[in-house]
Design a protein around this nucleic acid. Sequence first.
RNA 1: GGCGGCUUAGCCAAGUGGUAAGGCGACGGUCUGCAAAACCGUUAUUCGGCGGUUCAAAUCCGCCAGCCGCCUCCA
Length: 484
Amino acid sequence: MGLKIYNTLTRKKEPFVPVNPGKIGMYVCGVTVYDMCHIGHARSVVLFDVIYRYLVKTGLDVNYIRNFTDIDDKIINRANSLGEDWKQLAERYVKEFHVDMDALGVKRPNIEPKATDHIQDIISLIAALIDTGHAYEANGDVMFSVTSFSTYGKLSGKKTEDLVSGARVEVDEKKKDPLDFALWKAAKIGEPFWNSPWGPGRPGWHIECSAMSMRYLGPTFDIHGGGADLTFPHHENEIAQSEAATGEPFAKYWIHNGFVNIRSEKMSKSLGNVLNIRDILKETHPETLRLFLLSSHYRSPLDFSDTSIKEASVGLERLYAALSSLEELERSDGEISSLPEELSNLEKRFREAMDDDFNTPKGLAIMFEASRAINRIHTESGGNKEKIPSPDLLEKARKELLGWAQDVFGILNETSQDFLERARKSGAIELGISEDEIRELLDQRTEARKARNFKLADEIRDKLLSWGILIEDGPKGSIWRVKE
RNA sequence: GGCGGCUUAGCCAAGUGGUAAGGCGACGGUCUGCAAAACCGUUAUUCGGCGGUUCAAAUCCGCCAGCCGCCUCCA
């Protein structure tokens, strides 16, 4: 077996063979900090979070780097339009990024380098490229010479001739060739700058990732990731710069995630349908959002809609409910010395799913199958010890299931009681009903049922239902929850 | 114009040569005063269409149709 990864570089699923056994270097392109993060950022960050968690789970020592682009045209423009200092603006959005990602339960990478903290690394790298004839200075700018790097286009599958004839490449007097791109940009008046051998200026976009990844991971490392849109030109240019400078292969495996659509439409500022993580989390449990993001394969497009979020939410509740049932079964002193298939090979099945190019939908399916097995035992046993597996077996299954859910997928981190309690609280607030009021009606209904006054009991239930409150009568009394 | 990808049930979605996971929804049953939840069963003889290769194809090849992405800042 062993892990297989779809590599954009070869367009094939390949066995994962680390550069240095047991020691993994992973670099993921982070965000440009000029605005709040949206659902698309969430998909990318959560995917690589899960990949990172999985590699760690399998016992690998992972050095995970995710950068912040904190100097860039967009940042400067935004700062100017807000009348805010660009540095302050960038720092502000770094903080906001962390607020959102912490809320989503994303693990912090080992290092989160910022471009502006690596200006000297960038300058050294550019100087090396000039020395080796891969870059040239032009009026304070430094450009990378694409024709000097013979394998340019190998990641995105583009031919340089096609790119030129495409006529969509930027025309710039300073370029010797239309495909050349900026490594260093001379500062215009009023723009932030750093001094360099070529005069005051700032780094181009692509060079920072080459400089920072090499700084922390060396010239050759294992995994480089990012959104599918970064494949070209960003990652293509990174490869060219890095390999031209070092003469060694750059990243070995390239992983790219697909886009999130909003109600079947492309998300874009012009359509005005950009969804911020912050706004989504106002009405959606963070674990629901994670479940949603992991419910389709990472390279496929993912459609965000009310329906898809509702499905994820219902699914999460189902998993928590099963967890609750499992805990109850553990307390039943069961006497069976075996577990159903769906609960006994969890470790192996999860690994098989994730080893297959991080197949998270399959991993989730395993959780749902386990849930059904738990519920089946719960209902079919009717509390009969002779039909329930022993507590130690159930505990082992629960720990395995939770271990994967929490450590790899980043869900089911609450106790089922807390989860249901919180859902009730926030739901009641959203509906504008006090919990006391609900409890009072529930008590009235319980009295009515005791008196076998079912007409009144049903009236109360219908009344609550019309408010969006659902009642479930169980052996231990009636409970309520907010209807989805 | 160039390059690449996708098309699986009412919906979402796994599955890359051996006879269609999982979820949501719907319907029938069990349970319940009735419900809800849960469980059981049913819901794709078939994987966009047409050909081909093979003992065997959703999976490989060819053609056609539809959808999408990148080539420009973008996760």
